[in-house]
Write a protein that binds this DNA or RNA. Structure first.
Length: 111
DNA sequence: AATTTGACCATAA
DNA sequence: GTTATGGCCAAAT
């Protein structure tokens, strides 16, 4: 089981309508300081693994991080809103209220 | 084997 | 509020 696989396995558990953060995913797979590498893993998804809900992962400030050619920030915002998550736009940055939408997994969720 | 690269984060100023 | 910096670490080069 490599690092990327662990990331995908866990991201698949984030329920619809909730979000997680890069750091939270890293912590949950026992590598709390590898948040940036979680971003690597999601970037590497490409069109393989269409079952991994990558838009549900945002940064620790509740903002949408990505800004690349494949997916604009607005695209991720659109996907999140489609799940019922409220995404506010502030100076061209997209913000999600983590107090409200952060996934708080139980031990059962992580099984 | 060594270096470079970031969809990150916490801290400091 | 902002920007800068150092640390981090798996993969790719």
């Amino acid at each position: 089981m490599n690092f990327y696989s662990e990331v995908y396995r866990l991201v698949k558990k984030i329920p619809k309508g909730k979000v997680s953060t890069y750091g939270q995913i890293a912590t949950l797979i026992s590598t709390p300081r590898a948040a940036q590498v979680v971003g690597f893993a999601l970037k590497a998804l490409g069109d393989r693994h269409p079952d991994v809900p990558w838009p549900r992962v945002i940064n620790a400030q509740g903002r949408i991080s990505i800004n690349n050619l494949r997916h604009a920030r607005s695209e991720q915002a659109r996907l999140l809103r489609k799940e019922g998550i409220k995404v506010t736009e502030h100076d061209g940055a997209f913000l999600v209220d983590l107090d409200k939408y952060l996934w708080r997994p139980t031990r059962r969720d992580l099984r």
